[in-house]
């Protein structure tokens, strides 16, 4: 069953038509990756789903409920969590304080939050070691781990990840992607936006390719990896 359905989504930034009628869905438990060049509209889709942008037209349905135009804080409460591009962690707060923010809307559920904290520290032991350190003093990779962890603290059913590999060393990217896979395997449906197409397609079940606001190609990750056009445009083959 589809956990997230996006139908004919149109987004404008002023006069710029950023998304021109996007339709896709993410099944429960699945990982879908959105591929595409800079400015194709990948991050815009995530922002629309998490309520940070209001669509001009179209419908977003999460778990059978129409969430189009709902404010972001309500969408978080429904179980959609967004780890935004560029991490957006709070550098002057400690690791722990950053995590507490992720659990902001679960303030009545103390034991549940404690459980999530344990889970996050198990996934990223380095954060546990640095829990009292200021987030601004973490390395880039650790900051990315923190951004993902903070999103997990909301105990999402749908996790939106925007460019988790941005600016990280290849070895670290692999480690983080392994953890993302583990998170997904635990039942958290994941929508992954990524420039590193090869890695993303190895991880995801299905993928969609965006070009200037349109989805031009969709399919299973395996079929996309084999697709001639994808290989040429995104995997750097001749």
């Amino acid at each position: 069953m589809a956990l997230l359905e996006v139908e004919n989504l149109h987004i404008f930034y002023g006069h710029v038509h950023a998304l021109k009628g996007i339709t896709f869905h993410v099944n429960e438990g699945e990982m879908l990756t959105l591929l595409g060049a800079n400015g194709a509209g990948k991050s815009t889709i995530l922002r629309a789903v998490s309520g940070l942008l209001r669509p001009r037209q179209g419908r977003i349905v999460f778990d059978g409920k129409d969430i189009t135009g709902l404010p972001a804080h309500q969408i978080v409460r429904l179980g959609v969590s967004h780890a935004p591009e560029g991490r957006k962690i709070f550098p002057t707060l400690t690791v722990e304080e950053n995590l507490n923010l992720g659990a902001y809307s679960r303030w009545r559920d103390r034991t549940g939050v404690e459980e999530s904290r344990r889970l996050v520290f198990r996934l990223f032991p380095r954060l546990a070691e640095r829990r009292h350190q200021l987030a601004g003093t973490l390395s880039g990779g650790e900051q990315q781990m923190l951004a993902i962890s903070r999103a997990l603290m909301a105990r999402p059913r749908l996790l939106l990840l925007d460019e988790p590999s941005l600016g990280l060393a290849p070895l670290l990217v692999r480690a983080i992607f392994k953890t993302i896979k583990e998170i997904n395997a635990q039942g958290v449906t994941t929508l992954l936006v990524e420039q590193n197409a090869r890695l993303a397609l190895k991880l995801a079940h299905r993928g969609s390719v965006l070009e200037t606001g349109n989805i031009v190609l969709s399919g299973t990750a395996r079929s996309l990896l084999a697709d001639e056009r994808v290989r040429k445009a995104y995997l750097g083959e001749r």
Binding site: L52, H73, V76, L101, Y104, A151
Partner: peptide, 10 residues
Amino acid sequence: LAAAAMGIDV
């Protein structure tokens, strides 16, 4: 923006 994305009614 980050606060809103994390569930705060800004």
